[in-house]
């Protein structure tokens, strides 16, 4: 396979991909195109088919139907060792009996790359993940974050066309996870490899991705850039899964509005011109430090969450709002119409 076969063609092209486990359809006729160099995220709850899709791209599962093309070559029936992809596993899957160095060199070793070159490339890779000098350690002597970076180096050192990451940060604590998100993103920019990233964490997906696909019940419900998916969810499921489900029904149609787009109007305060305004009662208030979450029951039916920054207010002031009559407003275009077809799904 030539390195740049089918230049301009998408790096990954998936058509009609289907996988069943017994009676369960894990992946149901999925189509995907991922251009070269993109940071692409597959987001969804567990059992939604995102990991199975990733495993079929890697070659760990054989699809029942459909094709997978990598850089224009049909790899659907190729074993993992013949595919130009590498994987970072959720549990890292570092070989416990090998040193860090041997782990990173493994892919090169089984491909009979000469020892000198192996050394050099492994050193480069370890340097990139800031683990120079850790080569002689065993995986058991590393922290979770360090293991994660070894797993990354072990994959990248093979210079794959595509890097698959299966919830790679799932086992890390919040702070480390946020650091690693930034680091992963910068490494991806540096090496320019296509990243396909699987996660159930919507914040992670929104932060890191160029584009993301939201999986539900084995299907892709929506695919697009993070802002588009977040601000204009196309279904109730997406509205709820990527953010808070803020759904109201007006004139027989269902809408969703993001809580931070809604403004609470104080007594006597003038709404913005052309804004959508509705009266209601504050049913509950949650003070969360930098922001406050208001649950407003609307007079015309339904409930909305409103998120307001605590620019000047303290906790006692915001909590006093509970039970008061208020008006909510948002600018036209902030709300999204949810396809009625999806209304009953879940």
């Amino acid at each position: 396979m030539a390195p740049d076969a089918g230049a301009g063609a998408p790096d990954i092209s998936v058509r009609g991909l289907t996988k069943r486990f017994g009676d369960v359809v894990a992946v149901d006729s999925v189509d995907l195109d991922i251009p070269a160099g993109e940071f692409f995220t597959m987001l969804g709850p567990s059992g939604s088919g995102k990991t199975t899709t990733l495993r079929m791209i890697a070659g760990f599962e054989i699809p029942d139907e459909g094709t997978i093309e990598l850089a224009g070559q049909d790899v659907s029936r190729l074993p993992p060792y013949d595919r130009p992809v590498n994987t970072v596993f959720q549990d890292y899957a570092l070989f416990p009996h090998m040193t860090v160095q041997a782990n990173v060199e493994y892919g090169l070793m089984v491909k009979s790359v000469k020892k000198g070159e192996r050394r050099e490339r492994a050193a480069h890779a370890l340097e990139m993940v800031r683990l120079s000098g850790f080569g002689d350690r065993k995986p058991s002597q590393l922290s979770g974050g360090q293991r994660q970076r070894v797993a990354l180096a072990r994959a990248i050192v093979n210079r794959p066309k595509v890097l698959l990451l299966d919830e790679p940060l799932g086992a890390l604590d919040l702070k480390l996870r946020q650091e690693m998100q930034i680091e992963l993103k910068s490494i991806q920019r540096e090496v320019g490899i296509t990243f396909v990233y699987v996660t159930h964490d919507q914040e992670e997906a929104l932060t890191m991705s160029d584009r993301l696909a939201v999986f539900n019940n084995g299907k892709i419900e929506q695919i697009g850039p993070p802002a588009e998916v977040y601000e204009h969810p196309e279904s109730e499921f997406i509205a709820g899964f990527v953010g808070v489900s803020n759904v109201i029904e007006r004139d027989g149609r269902r809408y969703t509005v993001r809580p931070e787009k809604i403004n609470l109007l104080e007594e006597g305060e003038e709404p913005e011109p052309r804004a959508h305004v509705e009266p209601g009662v504050v049913r509950d208030v949650q003070y969360v430090g930098p922001v406050t979450r208001y649950h407003v029951t609307l007079d015309r039916g339904g409930e909305l969450q409103v998120l307001a920054q605590n620019l000047e207010e303290g906790s006692s002031e915001v909590l006093e709002v509970k039970g008061r009559r208020v008006r909510v407003e948002w600018r036209p275009g902030q709300e999204s119409v949810i396809d009625e077809r999806e209304g009953g799904s879940e």
Binding site: A58, G59, F60, P79, P80, Y81, V85, N86, T87, F89, Q90, D91, A93, L94, F95, Y106, G107, V110, K111, R154, A155, N158
Partner: peptide, 13 residues
């Protein structure tokens, strides 16, 4: 079991 998969993924038959 992911050790076997990791090995295959890295190019080992």
């Amino acid at each position: 079991g992911s050790l076997d998969e990791a090995s295959a993924d890295l190019g080992a038959d």
